[in-house]
Amino acid sequence: MKLRVLAVDDSRTMRGMLDAALRDAGFEVRLAEDGIEGLERLNEEMPDIIITDINMPRMDGFGFIEAVRAERRYRGLPILVLTTESAPELKARARNAGATGWIVKPFDEGKLAVAIERVATV
């Protein structure tokens, strides 16, 4: 069974890239434009894993992760953060919000797969 990934990014370009890369890597993909839409899609799609950007309007990645984690049934849901930096502060913040891990941009298919494998049962 294919894993279903919910990818949340406000950038059309990035959504397109994620969609293409994840599909090529054999995942089922759902997309959302920001944290708010991410939360809406979450309950409809029941993804196996979430990949989210941090800097987004309306609700940023941190807020989104906190909101996901606030729901009991999503406590163990793997959430990967997309970031352009690997600064320790950013990781700490993502983790404090409840992120499982991170993917440093720019990403490619291989990098995505490695990160996903580390947090989800592929």
Binding site: D34, G35, R58, E66, A70, E71, R72
Partner: peptide
């Protein structure tokens, strides 16, 4: 295994997305 029963008070944020300080009107 992640435990299932939980006494933790759940404040679910999903129903009130607009509550977060956002960027004005929804896109």
């Amino acid at each position: 295994a992640p435990a299932t029963p939980s006494p933790a008070p759940d404040t679910v944020a999903t129903d009130e997305p607009a509550a977060r300080p956002g960027q004005g009107a929804p896109a």
